[in-house]
Write a protein that binds this DNA or RNA. Sequence first.
DNA 1: AGCTTGATTGTTAGCGCTCACATCTAGCTC
DNA 2: GAGCTAGATGTGAGCGCTAACAATCAAGCT
Lengths: 331, 331
Amino acid sequence: MTDVAALAGVSHQTVSRVLNNHPNVRERTRVRVLAAIAELGYRPNRAAKALVTGRSQIIGVVAQSSTLFGPASLLAAFGIASAEAGFAVSVASIRQLDRASFQEAVERHLDQRVSGIVVIAPVETASEAIQSVAEDVPLVMIDGDPTVPRPLVTVDQAEGARLATRHLLDRGHETVWHVSGPGEWFDSRGRIEGWRRTLTDAGAEVPPILPASDWSAASGYQAGQMLARMPEVSAVFAANDHLALGILRALHERGRSVPDQVSIVGFDDVPESGYFIPPLTTVRPEFDEVARTSLRLVLEHLSEDCPPPVTPRHVSIPPVLVERNSVRPPH
Amino acid sequence: MTDVAALAGVSHQTVSRVLNNHPNVRERTRVRVLAAIAELGYRPNRAAKALVTGRSQIIGVVAQSSTLFGPASLLAAFGIASAEAGFAVSVASIRQLDRASFQEAVERHLDQRVSGIVVIAPVETASEAIQSVAEDVPLVMIDGDPTVPRPLVTVDQAEGARLATRHLLDRGHETVWHVSGPGEWFDSRGRIEGWRRTLTDAGAEVPPILPASDWSAASGYQAGQMLARMPEVSAVFAANDHLALGILRALHERGRSVPDQVSIVGFDDVPESGYFIPPLTTVRPEFDEVARTSLRLVLEHLSEDCPPPVTPRHVSIPPVLVERNSVRPPH
DNA sequence: AGCTTGATTGTTAGCGCTCACATCTAGCTC
DNA sequence: GAGCTAGATGTGAGCGCTAACAATCAAGCT
């Protein structure tokens, strides 16, 4: 920086001002400094800046390491959104979302003086851990616990479930069965709630839930083996596409044809779901929008000076129904 | 740090020594310092350390943002491996892996004084971009161009392809057709090469390749529509599981049964592949091992002082065949 | 005792930046 | 022309840490 200053014939402070777009710099000076920067190939040292300002241009993300489609998509989308806003993303992948791992991850981020923290926290164990993070840390949750008093951005699970269930009802099914995701996921709960409310609102009977123990096709297959044995089952809303895939296979094995005898709707719109047999009608969450919104919330948190927002905002991003061929056509 | 030093009755430098596990600290002193650290809840400021040492405990990853199974798994695995080694991971997701985006991502990492850079660089456009990174930057490629003189860790694509092709041949198929991945991916090339060599080594005829334009089930479906029309096709090696899924569907639509009339092997072992119809025999890359190895290479790069390694190491991690039901049983 | 040795601890400087403040200029008013 | 303002620039300190060196001390030797 001193070299740049010398070459431009100004003080280091003026260089700093140019770098940070401070208003009071004469245009002529600015150009001269910029030229010197270019000539010397100077790149500011972010560590030094972080040291003095107390924050780096980094956003810390805490996420359970997984290749599950939802979290992975969210992470990818968030990375893009941050890069566009000029923030680096430091990811702390943790194996288990338990209190200890979580706290360690947050603290590591804090040591690095991240500007803010985003937690992809779809399961319960995360929420109690979040409580233990100091209030003044700018933290926003994605897909987290709505009862925790922190800004939260989620896919509108209930709305997605409503879309799916309503679609099935509209096609003339008397009721809709539900294979739910694992109970500790907020996603599962939201989808159950949306499904149930849609049924009761429509005056339809609410059949018992078939709970899956994880999001895998294997679990879907298990549930499917039950569903296939029950002649009265004509419509199923699966909590995600992979569960739906397993159900599809179980149904196929027992000769129950989709969509002629049974209609199915999934959730997630995984890229390959259009090529299941048959192509799966599903609900597409808008991950990009979720990512952008959560980034916006963190950044707002930063710009607002001292007082933390009184009402932590909750934002739900409504998903969209993608119609394919796993639901019987209107007659 | 000064507070800790005062409380422990030592100098700040001794605190620093304890923190960095320097040898010459008396045990009694060490304990006292540790106690003071605990009592004060002191956490070292990594930015300050990065400033003075010139490197942060961060490893920068450059990856094309995508939810493709391979890259996503690699990224997740690398995150875990780094966390275990005490390194934070800063991810620069870029939309396009072109020279400009790539260079910007690398420079951003360099500004942050990352300890090393890992590039998940499965396509050609990345390799020329890598050439422009200064030689002395510790950089290792994952799944990158073998002709670039940089340390490289890859899944052993050719070996995986050999496993798949050999398996099909062993089950009595005269030859094996191949639906390849997009041409600009090194993965595709390695798999093609392994497939072709296995066939020629076995004296089998080498049928024309059906190239897919991307890794999607949609592309697999297109290729499958061709394959289904050719009665002589009895065995197919698909360059990944999602292509295989599309092929499966095309075959199913035209009444060609798998595995009775056509056998298929995929690549990737995506979690749901066991629930395709029929369950897919596939090749499982050892992503964890790839991640661990690449981390090891970066860290070696660091410890070796000044002289960069003369021979950049290339490491291939052999994958494993996972047998399921998409290949006809031995007669 | 006087000297060396090595282990342990303290002292000083400075990494590259930003902040708070001091200074300087030009343009205005009266 | 003195006095003021506001914009443009410079100065000095210090963020929290580590590297290099200096200082201390106990132990072992001649």
